[in-house]
Simulated assay, not measured.
Amino acid sequence: MKKILIAFMLAGTFGLTYAQSDYYNDYRRSITDINWQTVATDLLLSVAQTNQLNALNDRYHDYDSWNRVYVSNPDRWKEDRYSEIEKILGREKYGKFKKKYYKGQNPVAVYNQNKNNYKKYKGQKSKAYKAEKKNNGHHH
C-alpha cells in the first residue's frame, strides 16, 4: 500500500506540473536561442559588459550544477537571470534588448507563458483522448 501511495504522489507532482527538466530546458533555450555576440554588437556593449554576459551564460555548465541552485524553486531562474542581465546592461539597454529579442515583453513573463502553453497542451491531449474513447465506445 505504501509503495502505491508514493508512486501516486510522484505521478501527481510530475503529471500536473512542469517537470524540473522542462525548467532547465527553458533556461538553456534562454541562452542558446539568442546570439549573444549580436546582442553585444547591437547594444554597443563594452568589453566588460560582454564578458559579464558571457560569464552569466556559462554559469551552469550542466543540469546538475543548475539543479543544485534551483532544486527547490526551479521557476526562480528567470527572475535571477533577467534581473542580472538588466544589471549588466543597465535599464536603457535592457529595454532595447527586450524590445528586440522578446517583442518588448518581460522575458520572465515569456517563459511563464511557455509553462502555461505546456500545461494547456497536456490538458488538451488528455481531453481529446477521453473524448475519442467516449465516441469510439458508442457504435450504433
Score class of each variant (00 low, 15 high):
Asp58Arg: 15
Asn73Leu: 04
Ser72Thr: 12
Lys87Thr: 11
Trp66Arg: 02
Leu16Thr: 07
Gln124Lys: 12
Ala109Asn: 10
Val110Cys: 01
Asn135Ile: 07
Tyr121Ile: 06
Arg91Ala: 15
Lys100Asn: 05
Lys133Met: 11
Tyr23Pro: 01
Arg81Gln: 07
Ser126Met: 10
Ile88Met: 07
Asn112Pro: 04
Glu86Arg: 13
His138Lys: 12
His61Ile: 13
Asp80Ser: 14
Ile88Cys: 03
Gln49His: 01
Glu92Gly: 08
Asn106Pro: 00
Tyr102Gly: 02
Gln124Gly: 13
Val71Trp: 06
Tyr129Thr: 10
Lys133Thr: 12
Ser72Pro: 05
Tyr102Phe: 15
Lys115Gly: 05
Arg76Gly: 09
Arg68Val: 02
Leu10Asn: 11
Gly12Pro: 02
Arg81Asn: 07
Leu16Tyr: 06
Gly15Asn: 07
Ala131His: 13
Gly137Phe: 15
His140Ala: 05
Arg81Met: 05
Trp77Lys: 02
Leu16Arg: 05
Thr32Asp: 10
Phe8Tyr: 13
Lys127Glu: 06
His138Tyr: 14
Gln20Ile: 11
Arg76Gln: 12
Lys120Val: 09
Ile88Asp: 00
Asn35Tyr: 04
Arg91Met: 08
Ala40Pro: 00
Thr38Ala: 08
His138Phe: 13
Tyr63His: 05
Lys100Tyr: 05
Thr17Ile: 00
Lys98His: 01
Asn106Cys: 03
Leu10Ile: 14
Tyr27Val: 03
Pro74Met: 11
Asp62Met: 03
Asp62Ala: 02
Arg29Tyr: 14
Asn73Asp: 11
Glu84Ser: 14
Ile4Leu: 02
Lys98Ser: 01
Asn116Ala: 09
